[in-house]
Amino acid sequence: MPDGTSALQLVFGGDPALYAIVALSLYVSVCAVILAALVALPFGASLALTRFPGRAFVVVVLNAFMGLPPVVVGLSVYLLLSRSGPLGFLGVLFTPRAMIIAQALLVMPIIAALTCQTVEDLWLEYRDELTALRVTPARRVATLLWDARFSLVTTLLAGFGRAAAEVGTVMIVGGNIDGFTRTMTTAIALETSKGDLPLAMGLGLVLIALIIVVNALAWGARRIGEIRAG
């Protein structure tokens, strides 16, 4: 067991290096969730509202991809972004941008699959009304996403949780470069392997606290929205 006092000292001692790591972790995961949501929300909602041959296959694959192994996603993005890869010319490997791309790919299926489920359920309630109002398919997607917005907050949180907690993708495409691409999770993994358990534990506590704070903020926003919008 690590020495609790030193872990706490680290957390409350105002170490600038620690804050930089915390800030980068938040930045990468929040950007990844936003990027993923831009694609996954409309995709999930459209999938919920359309029927086409092979739809069941797409849904099954999407659900399965919720459990994508982070290291595999990391490796794929690494191959894409590496100097000899198809996107190598971008020169973003081992930068926070690469980490954002990789995490976005990781959480996209989660957000899309959960959105699909949420919107499908809401559609059962809305179908007759929106059909009677002769609402166009594109507007249906927008309407259902908007009206499901409070449930979708939880969906985005699930995505954020996955992004903030994973270590495999950011380790591979970020490289865990001190002061540049080191995040909470990669730092914890590194410090653990170095045997600096107090530091690893301190970082772990900060990460957990951070996730709780983000969830609390989202919960508050959701409650206020629900009270206002009914």
Binding site: E125, Y126, D128, E129, A132, L133, R134, T143, W146, D147, R149, A229, G230
Partner: peptide, 25 residues
């Protein structure tokens, strides 16, 4: 056609203001 309208026994209220519900249609 377009000029049919229906009021259901349990109408679905969109999650927005009364005015926005009318504007929507």
């Amino acid at each position: 056609g377009e000029r049919l309208a229906m009021v259901f026994q349990r109408p679905v209220m969109l999650r927005r203001t009364a005015a926005a519900n009318v504007a929507y249609a």
